[in-house]
Design a protein around this nucleic acid. Structure first.
Lengths: 172, 172
DNA sequence: GGAAATCTACTCGGATACCGCGTGTCCGAGTTATGGTGG
DNA sequence: CCACCATAACTCGGACACGCGGTATCCGAGTAGATTTCC
């Protein structure tokens, strides 16, 4: 199991299609996005709810409702998305082994043994900090640009047409 | 669940007591170390086996056997230990969502869609690389030094006495 | 007193049980645009 | 023609089943030093 969940992957992929590159009206329903990306739409709904609570998305309810980016794609970092979906979970959780040393009185370990941050824990925290710094360097706009780099020039227009062809009126 | 397992935490804590700071003869049994640190010794045995296979520890079998560091503590990094115990697991596993796009033929997605590394995956890989770089900066010797910094000057000697008082002859 | 046999303590490896969490699914409630109906 | 009502489509939130992997435990086998026994 990986530290950064599949939910984050699903979320980012779908968020890309809310950027102006692929979606001028900047709003789409969860179902359309999920089907476009081939991910379970009920699962994606949960993810988008989290993203909305974190202030990255705004939801409009009711028929013809959907989600849109709450701010420019260049102001949404990968770290924002990871934190919103995975909830700032830490890379390592310290169990305070240092205070379990058999030499100590189990009921009353000395104060110095648990003073400050455990040295092992502090190494893990700095590693986590490095990871977060890197994630904060990249924005949705960067990822959208890299995606269109590889794809043929006609791809964004095809996506837009596909999205416009959906919706409640598709049966009529 | 955290990405860096409890096994790594147990392992590092116990490895610290194989450094010259705490253990001049540089060898100790799994059971003694486990009881000293208050961790399950059968679980620790598995971890030490992994560390030995990775070349960080050397085992001597038989009665009075035990483990010792295979090289100086200053040459064993936290990254070495993490890789040995957790097995180089990646921070993120890409599911190639990009080739699932509903616009493509599901049986035959276009080649450009999966050319090179997924842009999202590459961000995660660089974040992981940053994390590993930080873990590689710290060695067992650093951690041992930081531990003795906080502890009273008498602590290492107390640990040594405790370890020496153990072993098969402790009943006699 | 010395050699052989036994004992003890340790490593090594596999098998297995438990449990938490990520993943995925289902369902009911609330909200709003759309289309139809009646005055 | 306009106001009203029913319907459809969507978000929101909780509940729950499933499976995987980390954690922990147990057991048998092999090895080597220590102890005891026997010649």
């Amino acid at each position: 199991m990986s530290h950064i969940s599949a939910g984050v992957e699903y979320g980012i992929h779908c968020l890309l299609y809310l950027t102006p590159t692929f979606n001028q009206r900047r709003e789409a329903s969860v179902r359309d996005l999920a089907e476009l990306q081939g991910v379970p739409h009920e699962f994606l709904a949960k993810l988008f709810t989290k993203l909305a609570k974190a202030g990255l998305l705004v939801a409009s309810e009711g028929a013809r409702g959907g989600f849109a980016l709450a701010r420019p794609a260049a102001d949404i970092t990968v770290l924002d998305i990871v934190d919103a979906i995975d909830g700032q979970k830490s890379l390592f959780d310290c169990r305070e082994i240092r205070s379990r040393c058999a030499i100590f009185d189990p009921e009353n370990p000395p104060a110095w043994s648990s003073r400050g941050v455990c040295s092992i824990h502090s190494v893990m925290l700095s590693a986590q900090q490095r990871m977060r710094e890197e994630l904060a360097l990249w924005t949705l706009a960067d990822l959208a640009a890299r995606t269109t780099e590889k794809a043929p020039a006609s791809y964004p227009a095809t996506v837009i047409r596909w999205l416009d062809g959906r919706g409640p009126a598709r049966g009529a």
